[in-house]
């Protein structure tokens, strides 16, 4: 059992075990910090979505809370003009490469992106940037779900769960830069891959990239 420490988040005193990552301490205490790529059980931190920034007293610039171990006396603010600006830009960038069709989307109402928008007062549209082209083809080869890359935010949760919980390893990241995608070996449809259609990835997906087929 590791040492218990006390820290302050948004003025609230909170007890946590030393070394635990700030993001989880906050979430478990009912303090919301936007996040998409974090997986608590994963030791190899992704830190790729760049949404969970917070201000920590004594640190010069905002830091990602998913990578920050908590320590005694730490003073954290989840909001500040600098944090809000970074989160707003990262969020708008993600939306600029996303098929935005909330009203007809199967995840409408249960989407993590919508949750971030609601919590932080952000608009679900792209204003400053130009919407980029996205992959329009949808992989509907599995019987129970579909894979729509145009709604993928590259958080990597599906890959992690496929590998570590389902123990299958049907999907992974491939290519790089703007072309980085979640794909199967050789880009074959999921039904032709080792995928067992266990559906764990669908549960893990924060948006509607992997979604149940509507009955």
């Amino acid at each position: 059992m590791s040492k218990m420490i006390t820290l302050t988040i948004d003025g609230r005193k909170i007890t946590a075990s030393e070394g635990e990552k700030l993001l989880w301490v906050a979430l478990e205490n009912g303090i919301y910090i936007p996040n998409l790529c974090a997986i608590k059980e994963n030791n190899r931190l992704s830190a790729s979505c760049r949404l969970c920034f917070v201000e920590v007293e004594g640190l010069a610039a905002p830091v990602t809370s998913c990578t920050l171990p908590v320590s005694e006396g730490m003073v954290v603010k989840t909001r500040s003009p600098r944090v809000d600006r970074l989160v707003q830009t990262a969020f708008e960038l993600l939306l600029s490469h996303h098929r935005l069709e909330c009203s007809s989307c199967s995840k409408n109402g249960s989407c993590e992106l919508q949750k971030i928008a609601k919590e932080r007062g952000l608009k679900l549209r792209v204003k400053r940037f130009k919407p980029l082209d996205y992959e329009t083809e949808v992989d509907d080869s599995p019987k129970t779900f579909v894979f729509d890359r145009s709604k993928c935010v590259l958080c990597g949760r599906c890959i992690w769960i496929c590998r570590n919980i389902a123990k299958v390893g049907a999907i992974g990241f491939s290519r790089r830069g703007l072309e980085r995608v979640v794909s199967t070996f050789g880009d074959v449809p999921l039904a032709e891959s080792p995928c067992t259609e266990c559906g764990l990835c669908v549960e893990a997906c924060p948006g509607a990239a992997l979604a149940r087929v509507q009955a």
Partner: peptide, 25 residues
Amino acid sequence: PLPAMEKIAQALHIPAVDVFGPATF
């Protein structure tokens, strides 16, 4: 070629997609 990558993956005992990733990166 894809068959070569598949064979490498088998020989290394890793998912084929883990060969495909670096090969496209």
